[in-house]
C-alpha cells in the first residue's frame, strides 16, 4: 500500500513534470520534477493539500494538480515563500516522526487531519518550527491550496476546471479569458 502510493506519486510526477516543463522553458535533459522542492517535500505537500481539499464526489486537490500551482508559485513568482515551505515542511516531518514514527505522507487520513487541526490552532510543539511558526506555514499552504484549486488552470492547478464543475459554473466565466486557451 505504502510503496504503491510512492510509486503513484512518482508516476504523477513524471507525467505532470512533462506537462509542466515544456521543452521551450527548460532543457529536457535533467529529470527535475519539481522546481521548488524535493520529492520527499513534494509528497508531504501533496498529502497536506489533499487533506485541505479532499476528494469526495468531486476530485480533490491532488487530482486538480494543486501541487503544480504551488511549485510554479514558488519557483517563478514568489520564491520568497520557498523558505517558509522548507522550514514548515521540515517541522511537519519531524513532528510527524515524533508523534507517529512515520512520515506525514504515510500517516492515516485521521492522523493527518488531527495533525493539521492542531497546526491550524498552533497547538503542536513549537520546537519543530524554530524559524517559522506552524500557524504561519499552515495559513500559507491553506491559501495556496485554495488558489491552486479555484484559480485558473493556466497557473497549474484546477485541472480540467474541476472546481468550476463542482460549483456548477460554466467556464470561462470571465468573458475574454478564453484567450488563454490554445
Amino acid at each position: 500500500m505504502k510503496s504503491n502510493r510512492r510509486q503513484f506519486i512518482k508516476q504523477c510526477m513524471l507525467l505532470y513534470g512533462s506537462v509542466l516543463f515544456l521543452p521551450s522553458c527548460r532543457p529536457s535533459a535533467a529529470p527535475v520534477w519539481y522546481s521548488g522542492f524535493t520529492a520527499q517535500e513534494a509528497s508531504a505537500i501533496d498529502a497536506i493539500c489533499e487533506q485541505l481539499i479532499p476528494a469526495d464526489d468531486y476530485p480533490g486537490a491532488r487530482e486538480a494538480g494543486v501541487i503544480h500551482y504551488i511549485d510554479k508559485l514558488l519557483y517563478q513568482r514568489f520564491p520568497q515563500h520557498k523558505q517558509t515551505y522548507r522550514q514548515g515542511l521540515a517541522g511537519v516531518e519531524a513532528c510527524s516522526q515524533a508523534l507517529y514514527g512515520n512520515s506525514f505522507a504515510e500517516l492515516t487520513g485521521a492522523q493527518q487531519i488531527a495533525m493539521l487541526e492542531l497546526m491550524e490552532r498552533g497547538e503542536l510543539p513549537a520546537r519543530y518550527w524554530p524559524q517559522t511558526t506552524q500557524k504561519a506555514f499552515f495559513e500559507l499552504i491553506l491559501a495556496h491550496t485554495m488558489q491552486g484549486f479555484y484559480g485558473s488552470p493556466r497557473h497549474g492547478g484546477n485541472k480540467d476546471y474541476v472546481s468550476y464543475r463542482m460549483m456548477k459554473l460554466d467556464y470561462p466565466l470571465l468573458i475574454g479569458q478564453n484567450r488563454y486557451e490554445k
Binding site: 487533506q51 485541505l52 481539499i53 479532499p54 469526495d56 468531486y58 480533490g60 487531519i113 493539521l116 491550524e120 491553506l142 491550496t145 485554495m146 488558489q147 479555484y150 484559480g151 472546481s163 468550476y164 463542482m166 460549483m167 459554473l169 466565466l173
Partner: peptide, 22 residues
C-alpha cells in the same frame, strides 16, 4: 469568484476539509 468565495465564511465554519468543499 470561487477563490474569493472560499475566503468568506460564517464565524467558526471550517475553512478546509470535506466541510469546506460542501
Amino acid at each position: 469568484l470561487p477563490y474569493a468565495f472560499s475566503q468568506h465564511r460564517p464565524p467558526g465554519a471550517p475553512r478546509w476539509g470535506k466541510a469546506h468543499k460542501q
